[in-house]
Computed example of a mutant assay.
Amino acid sequence: MKNVTFKNRDWDVAATIRFPDNFDPAKSYPAIICAHPISSCKEQTAGNVYGEALAKAGFITLAFDASTQGQSGGQPRYSEDPGTRTEDFRCAVDYLVTLDYVDAARIGVLGVCGGGAYAANVAMTEKRIKAVGTVVATNYGRMLREGDMSPDAALNLLETIGQLRTAEARGEEPLIVGYIPFNNQAEREAAGIEDVDMIEAIDYYLTPRGQAAGSPNKLRLSSTGPAVGWDAFHLADKLLTQPLHVVLGSVAGAFGSYRDGFELYTKARSSEKSIQVVDGASHYDLYDQPEATSKALEQLVPFYQKHLMD
């Protein structure tokens, strides 16, 4: 494993590259870009679970911190902008094709949660990506538009974003909020929130189970305007042609990865596509719980072997 950087525009994107056992730099290997969830970082599920497992299966893997987040550069900090996030993937491909030990014709992508939706989206217009895998892919734009499920949730959010940008333009400090609004289970219980995704988000991100320095639970709310009008799966029926494997858990929660996974699978134009429902697994089980992730990898590994190795 080696820490590396690559450029997106004029800043460095921080990444970790992992190598197969008995790696020989004189040989040429298939590579898989591993993309982390919204609010996550390369040291969590995308890198330390899926990136590690796929490297053991014989692939070069590259897990990166999204621009403006983690150890990556870029401003404004803690932004969540689909345009910048998808450009990170293109720049990751640009980096991989410069490596002598990477076969430029055999590059795939794997994304978890929001990273899965970004991965599918960028593959529509980045045809150097030859195979697409997603784990609990979640359409971030859809989540923002639905918000608290009120009829005008999206419009209310956009009004707030406009007010925040005006305040920032006049010199006020940006509003930094948490992706997860509660600091612990007690706060969540006091608010009466019983959804499985919210419960397990707290357990994953805010306890030693998944905590990482690059994932501080910070979001610059004013940055999310473009995402409100963005649909990760728009034009998938016309442009997403690469082989696709979609993984989701049977336990559906409020974040919506269950329905998003089926939507992506149904819409994709890919002539070779498959969907895997891991029975009894929740959204966050498929981040790091060995029973759930091993089942996902039982199909992900042969999927990538077929499309990137054969």
Rank of each mutant, 00 (worst) to 15 (best):
Q185G: 04
R165C: 02
A186M: 07
E159D: 15
I193N: 12
G178P: 01
G192S: 06
E187Y: 04
G192T: 09
Q211D: 13
E200V: 07
A154L: 01
G178W: 00
A167S: 13
I202H: 01
L206C: 11
R188K: 13
D195I: 10
F182W: 15
P216F: 02
Y179M: 10
P216C: 04
Y204C: 03
A201S: 14
D203M: 09
P216N: 07
G171Q: 07
V177F: 00
R170G: 12
A213E: 15
G162E: 11
I199E: 13
G210Y: 11
A190K: 13
R220Y: 01
G214V: 07
D195H: 08
R188W: 05
G210I: 12
P181Y: 03
A167D: 13
E189W: 05
P216I: 08
A190G: 05
I180P: 03
L157V: 00
E173V: 04
D195L: 08
Q211W: 14
Q211I: 14
Y205T: 11
I193D: 14
A212L: 10
Y204S: 02
E172T: 06
T166Y: 12
G162W: 01
E172V: 03
I199V: 14
Q185I: 12
E173I: 00
T207F: 04
A213D: 13
Y205E: 09
N217F: 01
I193A: 09
A191P: 09
G178E: 03
D195C: 10
P208Y: 04
G171A: 07
P181S: 04
A191G: 08
E194Q: 15
T207G: 06
L219A: 11
Y205N: 06
R165I: 00
L219M: 12
L155F: 13
P174I: 00
P174A: 02
G178F: 00
A186R: 09
L155E: 15
A154Y: 02
G171N: 08
E200C: 06
A191N: 08
F182V: 07
E187I: 03
A167M: 10
G192D: 08
M198K: 10
G171T: 06
M198W: 15
L175T: 13
E168K: 01
A154V: 01
R165T: 01
I161W: 01
L206P: 12
G178C: 00
R209K: 14
Y179S: 12
F182P: 02
I193E: 15
Y204D: 01
S215R: 08
Y204W: 13
D195P: 11
A201Y: 05
L155W: 14
Q185V: 12
Q211E: 15
N156P: 05
Y204N: 04
E172H: 10
L158R: 15
T160N: 12
A191I: 08
D203Y: 07
N217P: 02
N217S: 03
L157D: 00
E187L: 05
A154F: 03
Q211C: 11
E173P: 00
Y204T: 06
P208V: 04
A169C: 09
N184Q: 06
I199N: 11
I199Y: 10
A167Q: 14
R209A: 11
E172N: 11
A186S: 11
N184K: 05
E200A: 06
Y204Q: 06
S215Y: 05
D195N: 14
L175D: 05
E168F: 00
N184W: 06
A191E: 10
A190T: 10
N183L: 07
L219P: 05
A167E: 14
M198C: 12
Y179Q: 09
